[in-house]
Design a binder for these strands. Sequence first.
DNA 1: GCGCGCACCCAAACCGCTTTGGATGACCGG
DNA 2: CCGGTCATCCAAAGCGGTTTGGGTGCGCGC
Lengths: 342, 342
Amino acid sequence: MTLRTLAESLGLSPTTVSRALNGYGDVAPATRARVQAAARAQGYAPNPRARSLATGRAMAIGHVIPATSRHEIVNPVFADFIAGASETYAAAGYEIVLSVMPEGDEAEGYRRLARSRRIDGLLLQAPRPDDRRIALLAGLGLPYVVHGRASQEAAPYGWLDMDNRRAFARATRHLTGLGHRRIALLNGPAGMDFATRRAAGHAAALDEAGIALDPALVRHEPMTEFYGYTAARALTGLAVPPTAYLTSSLLIAMGVRRAIEEAGLRLGHDVSLVTHDDGLSYLPNGAPGRPLFTATRAPVREMGREAAAMLLSAIAEPRRAPRTRLIEAEWVEGPSTGAAPR
Amino acid sequence: MTLRTLAESLGLSPTTVSRALNGYGDVAPATRARVQAAARAQGYAPNPRARSLATGRAMAIGHVIPATSRHEIVNPVFADFIAGASETYAAAGYEIVLSVMPEGDEAEGYRRLARSRRIDGLLLQAPRPDDRRIALLAGLGLPYVVHGRASQEAAPYGWLDMDNRRAFARATRHLTGLGHRRIALLNGPAGMDFATRRAAGHAAALDEAGIALDPALVRHEPMTEFYGYTAARALTGLAVPPTAYLTSSLLIAMGVRRAIEEAGLRLGHDVSLVTHDDGLSYLPNGAPGRPLFTATRAPVREMGREAAAMLLSAIAEPRRAPRTRLIEAEWVEGPSTGAAPR
DNA sequence: GCGCGCACCCAAACCGCTTTGGATGACCGG
DNA sequence: CCGGTCATCCAAAGCGGTTTGGGTGCGCGC
C-alpha cells in the first residue's frame, strides 16, 4: 500500500493525494474527504523513511545511553525521564531513538549521530562538570537540550536542571535550624555535576551556620541501598557520630535507615535524615500524603516532559537563543527529622 | 556530503563507490582502498534513511513502552533490560526505537507500527496471561520476541522467560524444608503473567508439602518498598502470623525487612525471607559475595542481551519456527533464611 | 466577447542510496 | 586473429514520499 497505488485506486495523481492528506489548501473539500476515507479504508500509512528522506526531517529524537560498560550501573532515573519525555514527543508525532554511545571515541560517536540525520535533536543526560560533549554538540548543528548542567561550560546552551545547590542548602539549613551540627552528606558519584552542586549547597549552608565542614562526613558513591547502609554504619561508629544525614537518593536513605535502626537508634529522634526524592514511579517516598522521609522533591518524569518540550521548540526555531530552565525542588516534611539530641 | 559528491570527487560513479563501501567483489582492491580513504577523510556517512528506503531494512528494533497513563508505574526492569538489549543491537548495527503505545486502541497502534516500516522487529515486554498483542502481531508479519510469556496463548511464538514457576516453587520448598508452614507471598500485580506463574509455583510447592494455602497470606500489588512494609506489618499482626515471606522483588523485600525489624523480630531467625532478584544494576542484593537476602536470581540485563539476539536471528531467518528460551534462576543463599521457630 | 483570477489538479524533479543488467577492455587459448 | 572469459566499472531504474511550477476550466467584471 503506497501513495501511488492509493492514488491509482482513486483515479488521482500522487501529488493530489499527498496534498490532500497533508492538509494543503489547494484540494477540493470533497476530494480531500474522498482521499481520507480511502486511506482509512485501505489502511494506508505513509512510509516514514520515504517521507523523512523527502522532507529532511526525521521526526525522531535521540536519547543517548552513556557508554555502559557491561557491569556499570544504569541510571535509574532514565526510565521515568524517558517516560515523561515520550509523552511530549508522542503528542508531537516524534519517536525516540536510543543510541548507546561506545566508551572510547565519544566525540566520533556523536559526530556520526549528527551526520546520520536519523534524528532531529538530541537529549543529553547525566553531564559532568567539565563535560566536553556540550562544546562538541554546539559545533555540530544538531539541536540539543541537556538534562542537568555542566558547570564548567561557559558558552550558552539549552538545559533543564533542578536547583541542586539550593535544595541541598535548604535541607542543610533545616537541619542546622533543628540544632544539628554534625551533618553527614551521602552524595552521588563525585564525577557528576549534580553531586558537585549538592555538595556545594551543603557546604554553603554549613558555612552560613558557622559550622566547619568535616570531610569525614561526606561521601561520594553510586547511589545504592547498600552504600547508604555501609556508610551510615561506619559513621555511626565514629567517636562523635553525625546526628543528621543528607542523602542524594531514596535508596541511600533506605540504607541509612537500616543502619540507624540496627544500631538501636530512632530515626527522627536520635538521628535525622533528609533525602532527595526524584519522584520515581516505582520508588515512592511512602504513600501520597504520608511520606517516610523529609525530602526535597523534583519529579524526574515531569522534568522529562519539560525537557522534551524545550527540545522540540529548539528544533522548531533553530536560531533562537538557547533556553534554560531551573526547577525548584519541593519541600516535603516527613517524620525523619527532629530536633538534635543533646 | 552525499554518495554522489563523494563519487564525483573521486571521478567514479555512485554505483562503484557504493559497492566499494559495501564490500562487493567487483571492485578493484586499489579502487576500494582509494574510496575508503576518501570516505574517511571527507567524513562521509551514508544517510540511513535513504539506505533503508532502498534496502527495505530499517536497521532498527522497536521496544514498546506499555501505555503509561500519566501516573502509572514505569517498569523498573525496563532500563536494565534495554541496556542489555542495546549491547546486542549495537554490535549488529541496529538502533532502538521506543514507541509509547497509547492506551485505548492498542491493536491499531501495533498495526500502525508494523505498517510504518520504521522497524525490522519488535520486542514485547510485560505480557499478561491473555495478552492479545501476541495473536495480533502474529498476523502482522513483523518479527517479534516476547520477554515473558502469555500463558493462555496457544499458538507458538518466540519468547524468552525466566522459569518463574520453578523458581518460586524452589524457594517455597526451601522454606518448607526449614520447617516453615505459614509462608506469605508478596507478589507483583495480579494481571501480570510472571506473577501468575510465581503464585502457581508457590501453591504447588505448598501442596507438595501437604500445606493448605491460606489466601490471606497472598498479596498482589505493584512492587514497591511501601507495599512490602504495609503488607508485612499487617501480616505480622495476624493471630497466627507467617514465619516466612516470599517476595517478588528486592524493593518489596526491603519493605518487609523494615516491618519485621520494627516489630522487634530478627530476619533469618524469627522470620525468614526469600526474594526474587532481577539483578538490576542500581538495586544490588547486598554486595558481591555478600548478599543481604536469600534469593532466586535472573539478571534482567543479560536476558535483554539474549532476547535481542533471538530477535535478530528471527529477523535474519523469517521462516524459521519461533524459538523459545527458558532461563533457570540462580539460587543465592543469604542470611535472611533460617529454621522455622517453634 | 475577452482577459483575468481562482480553484483544482498534476507531471516531473528530487531526497540519497542500492541494485540490476549491461558495457568495456584486457587477457587467453586455439 | 578471434571468440570467450574475467575483472571492473557504470547508467538507469527503483525505494515512497514531497514539492515546484505549471496547466485547465470556470465564473466574473467590463
